[in-house]
Design a binder for these strands. Structure first.
Lengths: 246, 246
DNA sequence: TTTCAATGTGTTAATTTTACACATTAAACG
DNA sequence: CGTTTAATGTGTAAAATTAACACATTGAAA
């Protein structure tokens, strides 16, 4: 419990000057963004990692990140990283969590804002020849540099949750996809097996898939129908989920 | 698309010194936390607001916040604010989102990390006499200072979502509560009406409520039974939600 | 042409959710 | 003290959703 005088002090009105002085001097901290960039290839969920910057973490992999510039919006910094690394604009990007332990970075106090991004691996052309940058199967990601393992784990859990509530997953697929590809995607993200008939029934019942009247090409088996997702229809009809369920 | 040489540059290994210099000099930014402190009183969801610090926003209400100290963990800063304002330790606190538009604060570049907190209004003793600090009915919160309306809206949506997935709500209630209080709480948070019999059935079926064999006291009507929530049992049995539902 | 592997399709049972009404209890009131 | 009032406590049936499950068809590969 606080005394009245302590409260008085806490509540005292600050002048703009006072705050400006705090903002400009003593209390500044380096801020970075780190991006967990997901892709989907060969029916596996992948993440783009880079070899660590630092000697301390030599040989370890880390997330793609950079400091935020003082005159740069936070989201813009995340888009900058993505553009830099994948050449892609207009990608799906969502902020997840901010990690701010004092000792989390060996170079000093750096607070980092984590984002995850979903990209279609067909579209990007990254210089993978450069072996500093590499797609990793998410199932084999362990022991990342810094606190990046924790950040990665947080982002993948967020993705697992979000993908069940919103049609995010389509960002990882080509515009035209088969139901098998769609199911493989959900199985890879959620790390579970699903019943094929029930899966199809579910998506058809939602009524957001458009039958393109085309078939898969160059598959080593009977070709399936191709569909696209109708985002306009989804935006109109999307529902508020209500239902207590611990 | 980037050229090879641009990529080379982007991927070049930084020395710890190089990063340290960036961290210590040019790229530092003021970082704050803002807390949306929820309470539940008279069957209404409330939020604790303070009159704005700044002349620019004179007369407007704002969230409780402060700059993060350079040697202070991010979460610790949020707990500090709460302790300072409510006298409470060990409160429920969850990070929600980081707001980082360059122009969001008139005093200069300040990136803010938003948290929400759930407290039992019985427990705290804040100096409400001091009319700078006040509980507001969430339904009447409009036109906050800075970008605090956006932050508030984001936090309340997060609360609405979370409360349906996890037993957070109990942080807003006394240890012993009646089913009416519990239902009023959910109705206030979600801003909907629920069927009383179905609500009770739902919670009894979950089997986390413990019948305390006590009755409400001092209510102006037939007293109801009192219950507590069995958190230990919940921790053991809590389920992973699986089910695609857009 | 045979083999193989994946597509496409429906029904039934089980579970969950919704809608809905009446007797009981204790406090408040005259 | 008896009556009124307002909230508690309880069950069932219909509707909707989910889960389990098998076989004929197609086209590519061998």
């Amino acid at each position: 419990m606080l005394t009245d005088s302590q409260l008085k002090q806490a509540n005292s009105v600050k002048t703009l000057q006072k705050i400006q002085s705090e903002v400009e001097n003593i209390n500044r901290i380096a801020l970075s963004v780190d991006c967990v960039i997901f892709g989907f290839d060969e029916s596996k969920l992948k993440v783009l990692l880079i070899r660590s910057d630092l000697k301390k973490y030599q040989g370890k992999w880390s997330l793609l990140g950079d400091l935020v510039f003082p005159a740069e919006d936070l989201d813009a910094a995340a888009y900058r990283i993505l553009k830099q690394r994948t050449g892609l604009s207009d990608v799906f990007l969502e902020q997840v969590h901010t990690f701010g332990r004092v000792q989390r970075h060996p170079a000093g106090r750096v607070v980092t804002v984590a984002y995850y991004s979903l990209i279609n691996v067909q579209h990007h052309k990254l210089n993978i020849l450069d072996n500093e940058l590499h797609w990793h199967d998410v199932k084999n990601v362990t022991d990342l540099a810094f606190d990046h393992q924790e950040i990665f784990d947080t982002c993948i859990r967020q993705l697992q949750k979000r993908v069940q509530e919103h049609p995010l997953g389509f960002n990882l697929l080509p515009k035209k996809f088969s139901l098998r590809e769609l199911q493989n995607l959900y199985e890879a993200i959620l790390d579970i097996k699903m019943d094929r008939r029930n899966f199809r029934k579910k998506f058809f019942a939602m009524d957001f898939l458009v039958d393109l009247k085309e078939m898969e090409q160059n598959v080593p088996h009977r070709p399936g129908k191709l569909y696209k997702f109708n985002f306009e229809k989804y935006e109109k009809k999307k529902k508020k989920l209500i239902g207590i369920d611990f």
